[in-house]
């Protein structure tokens, strides 16, 4: 059974979500400001950590602004967690069934619905990030030779994060309490992926354990790629690891989906 790819439908979902969200202009302004307030807070935090030292835990002070900006870009993927919570909630209260009766991949429908309103903010942020490169202090941002690898690494990390979200959504059909997974994932992902703080700052044992999971591939891998801080041949190995995780998650997702939909009780009149 295949549900065909429907670009026209996804365009319409993105468009409708965007138009719907324009109803809430004030939220737009606040959210855009909030994303940059977070960056400012991170800069202040790092300044306190460094306090004039040229390097902390292998990360030079000159790279910090670029690290923060790249981290923000990558965390856009994980900011969709609120949408996943909403999705799991709709599955729980039965509202989600309006997607299930349509011949379309329903989680993608929901994801597109969540992404639509974010497009202007993301675009504006991306333009700002590109512009920042020309400001003093941001020299380490995407040095020559890293741009294409960074895009590849970021794309792989986005696919992986999307698969993890999908897994949580399917578990939402299975367990009424799946909501906690999206909350737990959101709490941990910034630190454990290395997009909020450098992964090397964690204890060695923790890093060794994390390397057994896909989490560093969501943040640390694209971050280090974008900062040009990967060892020779490391990019290929990490990219292969990400690809293997993506492939390994496909059957797990298919099995979870089948099992979860069998258990779905679709409460509510």
């Amino acid at each position: 059974m295949t549900l065909h790819w429907k670009p026209r439908a996804y365009y319409r979902i993105l468009r409708n979500a965007f138009i719907s969200d324009l109803e809430y202009r004030s939220s737009y302004y606040i959210l855009f400001a909030a994303s940059w307030i977070t960056v400012a807070m991170e800069l202040a935090l790092f300044r306190q950590i460094y306090k004039g030292r040229p390097e902390v835990g292998g990360l030079p002070a000159s790279v910090v602004p670029a690290f923060i900006v790249l981290g923000m870009f990558l965390r856009y993927g994980s900011t969709l967690w609120s949408m996943i919570s909403e999705c799991v909630e709709e599955i729980r209260n039965g509202n989600f069934r309006r997607f299930l009766i349509q011949p379309i991949h329903y989680p993608s429908y929901f994801f597109a619905k969540a992404i639509g309103p974010k497009i202007p903010t993301w675009t504006l942020s991306l333009v700002t990030i590109v512009a920042l490169k020309f400001f003093p202090g941001f020299d380490a941002l995407l040095p020559p030779g890293t741009r294409l690898p960074f895009l590849v690494a970021a794309a792989l990390s986005y696919v992986l994060i999307w698969q993890i979200y999908l897994l949580i959504v399917y578990l939402g059909f299975w367990f009424e309490e799946a909501h906690f997974l999206s909350v737990a994932f959101n709490i941990g992902v910034g630190i454990l992926s290395g997009s909020l703080l450098p992964l090397d700052w964690l204890p060695d044992a923790a890093v060794r354990f994390l390397r057994l999971t896909p989490l560093p591939l969501l943040g640390d891998f694209p971050m280090r790629t974008g900062l040009g801080r990967l060892d020779a041949g490391e990019f290929e190995i990490r990219a292969l690891q990400a690809l293997l995780w993506i492939l390994a998650l496909i059957p797990l997702l298919a099995w979870t989906k089948r099992r979860a939909l069998r258990s779905y009780e679709s409460f509510g009149g």
């Binding site: 429907k6 365009y11 319409r12 979902i13 138009i19 719907s20 309006r98």
Partner: peptide, 30 residues
């Protein structure tokens, strides 16, 4: 799924904040 339609009196399939024509355009694409 293409052969059935469903109306749930207590659950809406229309997007609430935009004109119904936009939802209908989307359904045409789906």
């Amino acid at each position: 799924l293409r052969s059935i339609g469903m109306v749930m009196g207590q659950k809406s399939q229309l997007w609430i904040d935009i004109p119904a024509s936009e939802t209908l355009e989307l359904l045409a694409a789906v």
